[in-house]
Design a protein around this nucleic acid. Structure first.
Lengths: 344, 344
DNA sequence: AGCGCTTACGTAAGCGCTTACGTACCCGGC
DNA sequence: GCCGGGTACGTAAGCGCTTACGTAAGCGCT
C-alpha cells in the first residue's frame, strides 16, 4: 500500500502486481527471467501508480547512475551553451539528467570540478572546451579519468584530444586553413591572427592551419602576425587595439573564435574602420549570432549542437578498447565581413 | 581499511579515527554531541583519506540532497545562460551541483520536466523564464511545487510570479515604461511593440508598462501598435517584416527582449533602413552582446547573473510562511540604436 | 520413473549513509 | 553516598533499490 502523500516505492508496485520485489525490479529493468505476462502486469501497475525509481537508491544498490556531468569553460559563452543544448537535448530524450559545471577557463579549477563530479558519483562525464597544453594538468586529468573509467564511469570529450578518452573533434587545423585561403584569395597579404590563450590546444591547432595555408601559397611567414588574448569579446577588443598599434599594415584579422571576432568588430566600429572596406575580419565556430552581426561574420561553421549530442552518444555506448574519435564537418561560411584587400 | 582502488567510505574514516560510524557522521556533519577533540580527529582523517560522502547514500538515508534542478526555456539563449551562470556560480561556492533542463518554451513539456526533476528527487528546484497565462498549466505547476515543498523540497522562481513560491522578479512593467518614455522624449509618436508570445506573463507586464507611458503622456492608444512573434531572433525578424508591411508609419520599435531586438536590427539592416536614422529600436534585458551590436542597443539592463544567484540563495534559506519576493533593479541603458524621430 | 537442465520466481544480503535510541560516564545537589 | 540530568559516544535500524543465490515447477531424455 503506497503511503499517503509519498511517492510509491518498488514494494508498492510489487505488492499490487502480486510479485516479489526482485521480479518487479527485473521486470522494470527489462532484464530477462520474467515471463512476458508478468512483466506486462508489473509495468502496467507501475504506470498506474506513477512509479519512478528513486535514483539514489538505484545508484546506491549498484544500478547505473543516470546523471551525466558536463564541464564547460563558461555557460554563457554561446559556443558552450550551444554544445550544452545538444547534450541536454539528447539527455532528455534518454531520460538522463545533466549536471553542469563551469571551469572559468582555469585548468586547476577545471580539474577540481572534475574531481568533484567524480566524487559525486555521476555516471558519465563530458568535458568540453579546449585542452591545455600544460602537461601537468592534462596528465592529472587523464589519470583521474582513467581511474574513473576503470570503475565503470563513462567519459567523452568535446573538442579536445590528449585526454585518452572518446572524443568528438572538429578539424581545427583544416578550418584555420580554409579561413586563411579565403583571405589570401581575396588578395590579403598582411594577415594578423587574434588568437586565444597560447596555452590552449585549440589555438595551436587553428593557428597551425593558418600557417600552413601561407606556406602552401608560397607566402613568407613574415606576412603573418599573431597576437594572443583570450577567447572572449573583451579579449577580441584588447587584441584589436594591439593589432592596430603594433601591426598597422594588417588588412585582415583572423579571430580564432567568434567571441573574439565580435570584440574585433566592435573595436573596429568604434575606431570607424570600415569592415570589410579597410579591414576584413573572420571568426571561427559560427555561433548563432554570427549571422546577425553587422557586418555579418565570415566564419567556420561547427555543428555545435550535434557535437554535444555526439559526445553523449559516444559516452552512452559500451566502452571500446581504444578511444574512439568522431570528427565533425566544418564549413567556410562567407558573409559580409570579408572583402578584397583595399587598394592602397 | 579502505578497499584498494575504491573510494573511502565513512566506515574507513571511522575505523581510522577510532570512533563509531555514528560519531564520524556527526562529526563531519558538524552536528553536536561530539567533543571538539574527536571532531577534529575525524575531520583530519577524512581529509587525509580524501573522503567525500557518497551523495546517493546520504540522500537515501534522509540527508539533504545536494543537487539543484534548474529549468530554463532554452540554454543557448543568452538571457537564460547568464542566469544559469549565476546559479552555477553560487552552487559551486556551496558545493552543490546543478541539474539543468530546457522546456523549449513549451508549457506542457516544462511541466513534464518539472515532474521529472521531482521524481529524480532533486532537493531544490529553480524555475526560470516567463510564466504562461494558461491557468491550467500554471495551476498544475503550482500544485506540483506545493506538494514538493510539503515534502521538504525547496523552490524559487526567476522572473515569474503566480507560482506561489519564493521569486526574484524584475520590474518588467517599470522597464517597459522607461523604454516608452525614452522614445516619447525623442519625439516618437508611432511606436510599435515587437512582443513575444501573447501567452507569456512577461510580455503582458512589459507591454503594460509601455501602454501606461503613453497614457501618462496623454497620447492616444492608437499611437501604439503591437505585433506578436516569439522571443527569439527569428521571431524578431518575422515581426519586423510584419511591422514594415502593416504599420509603415512606425518610427520606433520596442522589442520586448534583446533576442527579438537583434532580429529586428538584422532585418532592418538587410532592408537598408537606417537605425536610428529612420527607425529607432530598443530591446529589453541587456544581454552581454547588446553592447556589441551595430548599432549598439538601447535596452533595459537586468542583473541576470545576480538574479540567478539570488534565486538560489532564496531557495537555500529555510522556507518562510509566505512566499518571499525579491525585486531586482533595472536600468535604462541608452546606446546608439535610438535617436530623435526623423523629420518627415 | 528418475535424472538433469532450464525457466520463472522468491529470499535475503547489502550498497553507504543518517539518526533514534541506548548506555556509560561525570557532574553537582541533597 | 546516592540520585537525577546532561554529555559523549556506540548500536542498530532503516532509506529503496539491485542482484547473488536458492527453490519449485516444467521440460525432454534415457
Amino acid at each position: 500500500m503506497p503511503r499517503a502523500g509519498q511517492r510509491p516505492r518498488l514494494v508498492d508496485v510489487a505488492e499490487r502486481a502480486d510479485v516479489s520485489l526482485a521480479t518487479a525490479s527485473r521486470a522494470l529493468a527489462g532484464r530477462d527471467g520474467v515471463s512476458a505476462e508478468v512483466a506486462d502486469r508489473v509495468r502496467q501497475v507501475a504506470r498506474e501508480l506513477g512509479y519512478v525509481a528513486n535514483p539514489y537508491a538505484r545508484t546506491l544498490a549498484g544500478g547505473a547512475s543516470s546523471t551525466v556531468g558536463l564541464i564547460v569553460h563558461q555557460v554563457d559563452d554561446p559556443y558552450f551553451s550551444e554544445i550544452a543544448g545538444g547534450v541536454i537535448q539528447l539527455a532528455a530524450e534518454q531520460g538522463l539528467l545533466v549536471q553542469i559545471c563551469q571551469s572559468g577557463r582555469d585548468p586547476d579549477y577545471e580539474l577540481q570540478q572534475l574531481r568533484h563530479l567524480i566524487a559525486q558519483r555521476v555516471g558519465i562525464i563530458l568535458i568540453s572546451g579546449s585542452g591545455y597544453d600544460d602537461p601537468r594538468v592534462e596528465a592529472a586529468a587523464r589519470a583521474e579519468l582513467a581511474a574513473f573509467q576503470d570503475h565503470g564511469g563513462r567519459v567523452a570529450a568535446i573538442g579536445r584530444h590528449a585526454l585518452g578518452v572518446d572524443a568528438v573533434l572538429p578539424d581545427n587545423e583544416a578550418g584555420g586553413n580554409a579561413l586563411a585561403h579565403h583571405l589570401i584569395d581575396l588578395g590579403h597579404r598582411r594577415i594578423t591572427v587574434a588568437a586565444g590563450s597560447a596555452g590552449l590546444t585549440t589555438v595551436a591547432d587553428r593557428l597551425a592551419g593558418v600557417s600552413s595555408a601561407l606556406r602552401q601559397r608560397g607566402l613568407p611567414p613574415a606576412d603573418l602576425a599573431v597576437v594572443h588574448g583570450d577567447f572572449t569579446r573583451g579579449g577580441g577588443r584588447t587584441v584589436t587595439e594591439q593589432i592596430l598599434n603594433e601591426h598597422p599594415e594588417t588588412t585582415a584579422i583572423i579571430a580564432l573564435n567568434d567571441a573574439m571576432a565580435m570584440g574585433v568588430l566592435s573595436t573596429l566600429r568604434s575606431r570607424r574602420i570600415p569592415v570589410p572596406g579597410r579591414m576584413s575580419v573572420v571568426g571561427f565556430d559560427d555561433v548563432s549570432v554570427a549571422a546577425d552581426l553587422a557586418p555579418s561574420l565570415t566564419t567556420i561553421r561547427l555543428p555545435m549542437t550535434e557535437m554535444g549530442r555526439t559526445a553523449l552518444s559516444l559516452a552512452l555506448k559500451p566502452r571500446s578498447a581504444r578511444p574512439r574519435r568522431r570528427s565533425t564537418g566544418h564549413l567556410l561560411v562567407v558573409r559580409d565581413s570579408t572583402g578584397p584587400v583595399p587598394t592602397a
